[in-house]
Amino acid sequence: MSSGLPTPVPRPTLETAPFWEATAEGRLLLPCCDACGFVIWYPRMFCPECGSTAVHWNEASGAGTVYSYTVTRKGQGAYRDAGPYVMAYVELAEGPRVMTNIVGADPATVHIGQAVRVVFDDTGEGPALPRFTPA
């Protein structure tokens, strides 16, 4: 899909390549600790809760709620001409609070506690950006 927002292209690293490869297929992966079960964010091959390096990828449900948000009137960099856009923290059903955008909604209607679901904005170069839209 395309939300109309800028789609800067992520640069996958040795640790995050599987995450970004999955976004190209419309799947949101979350790293989970084999040792303690913690769902880790941001993605890394290390569990910051228990120190384990045994981490595997689980597919997220894509469901979440808005934890906080702001309507940025003027962005910078790739977002310089994006006009008002919503930057937010969404709390995923699996636990992590992730920075993202709320798209497909009038910014004036976005609110804390709002149910949202993931959508993927194609960057045109493989990876897609996970964003969220009202459920």
Binding site: P8, P10, G77, Y79, M87
Partner: peptide
């Protein structure tokens, strides 16, 4: 390591 998981969504200082 956190850069990609914040910068891509257009955060600003304010």
């Amino acid at each position: 390591p956190e850069f990609a998981f914040e910068s891509l969504w257009g955060p600003t200082v304010p």
